[in-house]
Design a protein around this nucleic acid. Structure first.
Length: 177
DNA sequence: ACCCTAACCTAATCAACGA
DNA sequence: TCGTTGATTAGGTTAGGGT
């Protein structure tokens, strides 16, 4: 698609975080945990993270990717396997036992100010920028990443809503759907 | 070249908190 | 109670590292 607000590549500040390589032991623990609970709560992710010595955000990403892969496979093989697997959700039971989320981060107005300013300069900060920002305002880098994701998403939505009007005080880098 | 998958993205939705 | 916004999800894309 021609939707390229994309990061300006080679700029050092837009680099991705380096790719993790899990050892077999680590993978074994992750896969095992996944088979028991594909939707772990925050406490579980935290525990796994310290167990295999990585960050909680890596665990989160790993589970997301793993679930996606599984769904894809299931689509290929719609039949088979019906009952042999363990557990299946009793909806009610599952909803009740919805695991804990990470508690909501609340930002001070000065932290928000810093974030917003950075967003206006570059809505797609790379790992280095995010880490620096995180250090500056004293929150984990993963929270900064989530903040940018939400901000971008809502920025896009807001834009669709108001095609015209309020076209006065906006400087954008020229992009139109 | 190709494959696998971590990293990253958007859009929708859940849910905490304050006015 | 309701709007704002942080957290989580589905589902898709980008890119690093191994073959």
């Amino acid at each position: 698609m021609a939707q390229d607000v994309s990061p300006n590549k080679t700029t050092a500040t837009n680099r991705r975080r380096s790719r993790a390589k899990f050892t077999e032991d680590q993978l074994k623990i992750l896969v095992n945990a996944f088979n028991q609970k594909p939707y772990p709560g925050y406490a579980t992710k935290k525990r796994l993270a310290s167990e295999i010595n990585t960050e909680e955000s890596r665990i989160q990403i790993w589970f997301q990717n793993r679930r996606a892969r599984h769904r894809f496979q299931k689509r290929s093989e719609p039949e088979e396997d019906l009952k042999s697997s363990q557990d299946e959700d009793h909806p009610e039971e599952k909803i009740r036992s919805r695991e804990d989320r990470r508690c909501r981060t609340s930002y001070t107005s000065s932290q928000l100010h810093t974030l917003i300013e950075a967003f206006m300069k570059n809505p797609y900060p790379g790992i280095d920028s995010r880490e620096q920002l995180a250090k500056e305002i004293g929150v984990p880098e993963s929270r900064v990443q989530i903040w940018f994701q939400n901000r971008r998403s809502r920025f896009h939505v807001q834009r669709k809503r108001e095609p015209d009007e309020a076209l006065e005080q906006r400087q954008d880098q020229g992009q139109d759907p």
